[in-house]
Each structure stands twice: as structure tokens, then as C-alpha cells.
Design a binder for these strands. Structure first.
Length: 452
RNA sequence: GCGUCGGUGCCCGAGCGGCCCAAGGGAACGGCCUGCAAAGCCGUACAAUCGCGGGUUCAAAUCCCGCCCGGCGCUCCA
């Protein structure tokens, strides 16, 4: 398996700490609102990574956190007149449900930041003890970037560089020693949720929660730390320096998935609230959305548009039609195509090349359809078995057949009319079904139908 | 402004020195199949510029330089 490692800035061999096992920590969302398509793309990346590694024979442990305390949650809760707990619990629930609907498997652990306050405090204490952090009474505890050699390495920049950049854009907080220093612990403000600490009551800063949770659950030196590319700096770099300054070794590899854009104004006009995962799934369906995302490489910037989705819907339709034909011909899956699986693995093990992997699957579908047409049922069965196995690795498996007595009755009547060569009646029935959004297909073994 | 990633057919999107007269999906057109459809299969067209201009090389979509355009980052966004 080869992956692009942000730290090394190149594609490298994945070298797990323990051979045969891979531990992954993928940064999840701060739950102050419903999930948008970007959250879905990131979650999808690590879902597919885990599925593929598991299929390849690795034992995978995937941790994906929920950050349930932070400024945005506090502000939003105040706006809506609910408690921070109520707000974060509501959006956590929605997040989990929608990802499940989207076909994302639950991670092995889904820790909440607020359950790891003790561990965070311990790390901050260690940083204070060894001089990596300082306290400003009345404000909080800050990480001292100047004490850390190599700050900025994850983004390939020097601390001086980042400092200049920061100065140019941001009014520096005069309390801090250095504009790059960041809060590990924030002193309590009236009306905010607080926890006790050696520095008085307060709440954790951002970044530190991920260090506490990843170390606690996966241990030092875990294999992959991932998230969206917007988290690379400062979030991940800050996590990294906190962890290393405290004396622990952190992630062996860093992965970042690319951003997804839905072209703002053009989109919102015609599509309404298309940016949220829930709306997009309702509008296009979960599988087309998943296919659209997987047809782009996880690191590339992708733009979702009405056209993109129309294409993906067509792609899913092609997959489903393949299954319908196989079912109608009563072909079952038997042995798989080793060669196709090799090609698939080759694509996937090259930094998760899902577009190429999908191309392999579509080639198999094409071959299977041809085999059916030429009555080569054995080869058709091999295609079917291979497609089924590989599609499952990408989480795009087939859906169960719809059933509806009313529709089946109409199809029966049409069948009788066709037998009697009463094509006018048969076509009337077909038109009637179409007006109900039902498309039918006649095959040698009977008539199939689907919602169009 | 600094950094970084990218600009490939009608749309999406792989490819990242020769296997590329550029994968795969979608849309279009023609044919076969069908009572007619749908699905499928076969074929065709669409890139005379792979953002633009230079350069390196026997050979460039792929490497280098410059320019234009876009995304992301530059303290709380996946």
C-alpha cells in the first residue's frame, strides 16, 4: 500500500507499526450544525481506506472523533437558546445518522472531546513541566512555539515564515508571547461550560483534544492521522507539536483529503440548500453521491454540480441494470476474476486510486453484459462475482429489489395483453406505469420494473 | 502578499517522460436487438492547441521557467 504522506510531501509505502495491522485516526467534525458535503467526502475517504485495507487482509482500527466543545458550539447554543450539551448531542446524532445513510460504516471508536478532559489536562501539565507552555493568568495556558524546533514542518514552512505571514494578516493578541502560540487551556468566561484544572476552571483549547484521544485509544506512534486538507495547518501541525513536545511520538503518516466545492451562487439559486449532506442525498440519492465522490481522486479538489450528479446517477443506473439482467438470467456469482482483482488492487494500493478502481469495475460490467449477450453464462457469472466483491470494497453494493403488488398486477395484465398481441392495451399499461414513475424492461425470462 | 495544489473532450474525471493517435462514467448520434420500448451490445463524432508562451529531451499532457485563471491554508472550517 502506498499513500501520499503530507509530512514527507510524497507518495510513500505505508509502513505500519505492527505488521498486518493499521491504526487510523481521522479527524471528525465539530458538531454545531448539520453535516455538509465536505464532511461526507472526508468521512468517505477513510471509510473506503478502511474497507480496502481490511479487504487486503489488514486488521484495521479506525478512530473518528466528535469535537463537542468549542467556540462555535458555545456561540450557536447561545443563539438558539439551548445548552451546549443539547446542541452538540443533537448534531452528533444527526451526523451519525446521515453518515450511516450515506453508507459510511461506523468507526471502531467515536470518542467525544468532553470525555477526555482529564487526559488533556495531563498532557498540558506535562507541557508546563518541561517548559513547552506558559500560563497567562486570566487568559489561559499557551503553547510556546519558540521552544519547539521545526514548527511548520507539516506544511513545509519555517516558523519565521509562518510568523511573517500571520503578522501580515492578523492583529496579534498582545497577551501571547508570539503570534504563533496557541491556547491549550482557556480560562473560564461567564456562561460557558467549564471544567476544573490546575489553572483554574476553564475549557480546553482546540487541537489538544485530538492528541488526548488518539494517544489514549491508539497509543503512541499510531499509523495514520487524517482529515480534510483544511486541517493541515494549524490544527494538525499544532497537534503534532503538542504531542512531540510532551515527549510522545505521534502519527507515522499524515493523510489529507481534498476540498469539495459546490459553486456557491449558481448552485444555491437552482438547488436551494444543496450543500448539506441531507439535502444532497434526498435530491440525488446516497449511492450516486458516493459514486460521484469516488470517481474523483480523494486528494483532488472536486466541484459538485448538477451535471456531475446527473452523470453519477447514470453510472449507478448502469450498475443496477447489470444486476437486474443477471438476476433475470438467473446467473449467480461463482468464482471471481483474479486478473481484474489484481488491477483493482493495483489502483487502490496506489494512494487509493478509486477512479481507476471504478474503471476496472465498469470494464467488468461491460464484459459481463457482453457475455450475457453471447450466452456465455460461465463468464457472466465470473463478472458478476467480481463486480459484487469489488463494489462492496467501495461501499457501492447493489440495493434490494423494490416490490409493490399494485405495480406487479399491472405488469401481469400487460403480459396477458402482449400474449394476445393486444399491443395497444399493453402500451397503455406501460404509459400508465410511466406516469407513476415506473420504467419496465422486458427480458427473455420475464418483465422487470424499477422506479425511474 | 506569502505558501500550496490544480487547469485534460459537450460534462465529470484518470493519466504525470515513450505502452497516450489520452482510461472510466455521463450526455449525443447511427446500427443491432425488441411488436414498440427499456436494458444491453456494436460503432461514430466531439481535443486539428492536454490553460497560454518559452525551454530541456531522440521523445512531454507528463520535466524546467514565465504568465493567466481557480481552490485551499496563513489561529478556532472536513
Amino acid at each position: 500500500m502506498r499513500i501520499f504522506d503530507t509530512m514527507r510531501d510524497q507518495i510513500v509505502d505505508l509502513k505500519p507499526k505492527d505488521p498486518g495491522k493499521v491504526s487510523i485516526y481521522a479527524c471528525g467534525p465539530t458538531v454545531y450544525d448539520v453535516p455538509h458535503l465536505g464532511h461526507a467526502r472526508t468521512a468517505l475517504t477513510y471509510d473506503v481506506l478502511k474497507r480496502y485495507l481490511t479487504w487486503s487482509g489488514y486488521e484495521v482500527a479506525l478512530v473518528s472523533n466528535i469535537t463537542d466543545i468549542d467556540d462555535k458550539i458555545i456561540n450557536r447554543a447561545a443563539d438558539e437558546g439551548v445548552s451546549e450539551d443539547q446542541l452538540s448531542q443533537l448534531y452528533t446524532k444527526i451526523y451519525i445518522e446521515q453518515l450511516q445513510t450515506f453508507g459510511i460504516k461506523d468507526p471502531d471508536h467515536r470518542p467525544l472531546a468532553t470525555q477526555f478532559i482529564t487526559q488533556m489536562i495531563t498532557i498540558i501539565e506535562e507541557l508546563m513541566e518541561n517548559g513547552s507552555a506558559y500560563e497567562i493568568v486570566g487568559s489561559g495556558v499557551y503553547f510556546d512555539v519558540s521552544k519547539f524546533g521545526g514548527y511548520g514542518a507539516l506544511v513545509n514552512r519555517s516558523a519565521e515564515d509562518l510568523r511573517d505571514s500571520a503578522k501580515a494578516r492578523i492583529a496579534s493578541d498582545e497577551a501571547k508571547n508570539d503570534p504563533l502560540d496557541f491556547a491549550l487551556w482557556k480560562t473560564a468566561k461567564p456562561g460557558e461550560p467549564t471544567w476544573d484544572s490546575p489553572w483554574g476552571s476553564g475549557r480546553p483549547g482546540w487541537h489538544i483534544e485530538c492528541v488526548a484521544m488518539s494517544l489514549d485509544i491508539l497509543g503512541e506512534n499510531f499509523d495514520i492521522h487524517g482529515g480534510g486538507s483544511d486541517l493541515t495547518f494549524p490544527h494538525h501541525e499544532n497537534e503534532r507539536v503538542e504531542c512531540e513536545a510532551a515527549g510522545y511520538s505521534f502519527a507515522r503518516h499524515w493523510m489529507h483529503s481534498g476540498m469539495l466545492n459546490v459553486s456557491g451562487e449558481k448552485m444555491s439559486k437552482s438547488l436551494g440548500n444543496f450543500q448539506t449532506l441531507g439535502d444532497a442525498m434526498e435530491r440525488y440519492g446516497a449511492r450516486p453521491l458516493r459514486l460521484a465522490m469516488l470517481q474523483a481522486h480523494y486528494r483532488s479538489l472536486m466541484e459538485l454540480s448538477e451535471d456531475t450528479m446527473a452523470g453519477a446517477i447514470g453510472g449507478i443506473e448502469r450498475i443496477d441494470a447489470f444486476y437486474r439482467r443477471m438476476d433475470a438470467a438467473q446467473i449467480g456469482p461463482e468464482k471471481t476474476d483474479a486478473n481484474a482483482k489484481d488491477r483493482f488492487s493495483g489502483a487502490m494500493s496506489n494512494d487509493l486510486g478509486t477512479p481507476d478502481a471504478l474503471a476496472v469495475i465498469f470494464d467488468l460490467i461491460n464484459a459481463g453484459n457482453s457475455s450475457l449477450d453471447s450466452q456465455d453464462f460461465e463468464r457472466a457469472s465470473v463478472s458478476l462475482a467480481s463486480v459484487t466483491e469489488l463494489l462492496d470494497v467501495l461501499g457501492l453494493g447493489k440495493v434490494k429489489k423494490d416490490s409493490n403488488d399494485e405495480i406487479e398486477k399491472l405488469i401481469q395484465r400487460r403480459e396477458v395483453a402482449r400474449q394476445g398481441k393486444d399491443f395497444e392495451e399493453a402500451d397503455n399499461i406501460r404509459d400508465e406505469l410511466r406516469s407513476q414513475g415506473v420504467e419496465i424492461e422486458d427480458t427473455p425470462t420475464g418483465t422487470l420494473w424499477r422506479y425511474s
